[in-house]
């Protein structure tokens, strides 16, 4: 990085909104960079994203390209991670599977975070009957066992990755609502909230512009730490045959079909297992690092 950009970013008296924001971000990045494990987590997650984006370029074979002459081959020069029972290249399937995993991650984030934040901050800020109604709804959803709900969904609709994600999202948001509510209860007593009240701001404006931003960082941290669990649940559903369906190269489904050969051709189940393990670990390390940097109590 050039010296002048660094000076611009670390300027104690920024000259524009953009510079102020970039500077604050850069300072957090400097703090984050100190944490080696978190950087490892970040590289794993970035790796997952890149692999998913460039899957067609990176994969040596198509994800469903069968070569029945080369069934259940051990890892070799030709197939780095071996082949499965239909002669498909496991490496290529894992690479394409990254797209599915990333898709699950994005879908869950896009549904869970806004819903949880909205419910939690509204309940926490307004209190009274708003709080009672919203939190009882949250309790209802919290009471659903995740896998049973997924089973019910699949039975009612049809097995597939979309329904699995739906089931995961429906059972994942309540803890976020509770987290956001707990933070809101603290934040709403702060003087800076009283200050905007005394400026005449409406309740909704205060929640959206002043309270919610204070809850975002803990939501991001919790989301990242939960991501491993979400990926594992999606894989678990795939393994049970309730999530992604063959021939989709979803990692859980791959383990499921590979388990028949576990003793003699271990790589068929082990390779996607390792992929799940590494990505989950990456999200956890990233989450730990983010918690250290974003924790509002640190300031």
């Amino acid at each position: 990085m050039s010296g002048s950009l660094r000076t611009w970013l670390l300027d104690e008296a920024p000259h524009s909104r953009g510079q102020a924001r970039a500077g604050a971000f850069y300072r957090q990045w400097l703090a984050f960079r100190q944490n080696g494990l978190a950087m490892l987590g970040l590289s794993i997650v970035l790796g997952l994203v890149l692999v998913a984006i460039f899957a067609p370029l990176l994969a040596p074979y198509g994800p469903s390209a069968q070569d029945l002459d080369f069934r259940l081959q051990p890892p070799s020069q030709r197939h780095w991670l071996g082949t499965d029972e239909l002669g498909r290249d496991i490496l290529s399937r894992i690479i394409y599977g990254a797209r599915i995993t990333l898709g699950i991650v994005l879908l869950v984030v896009a549904t869970v975070a806004p819903v949880g934040l909205a419910v939690g901050t509204l309940a926490g800020y307004f209190g009274g009957w708003v709080d009672a109604v919203l939190m009882r709804i949250t309790d209802v959803f919290l009471a659903f066992p995740r896998l049973i709900l997924a089973l019910a969904f699949v039975a009612a609709l049809k097995p597939g990755i979309e329904n699995a994600v739906l089931a995961i999202a429906l059972t994942t948001w309540p803890p976020y609502a509770r987290l956001a509510r707990a933070e809101t209860l603290v934040v709403r007593k702060a003087d800076y909230i009283a200050a905007v009240q005394a400026q005449g701001a409406s309740g909704l404006r205060i929640v959206l512009r002043h309270v919610a931003p204070m809850c975002v960082s803990s939501t991001i941290v919790r989301m990242t730490l939960d991501m491993a669990g979400i990926i594992l649940t999606a894989a678990g559903l795939g393994f049970l045959g309730l999530g992604a369906q063959p021939p989709s190269p979803e990692w859980g489904a791959m383990i499921s079909s590979g388990r028949r050969f576990l003793l003699d051709q271990w790589w068929v189940a082990a390779m996607p297992g390792i992929a799940i393990f590494v990505v989950s670990l990456g999200f956890n390390l990233l989450g730990d690092g983010l918690r250290d940097v974003l924790d509002p109590k640190r300031e």
Binding site: A20, A190, D191, G200, A201, P296
Partner: peptide, 19 residues
């Protein structure tokens, strides 16, 4: 405590004007 920790001075002053 009376200034929002995530908002710049600019934002703090713009808020009452917007309200």
């Amino acid at each position: 405590g009376s200034l929002h920790p995530r908002q710049t001075v600019d934002r703090a002053l713009a808020e009452p004007l917007a309200i």
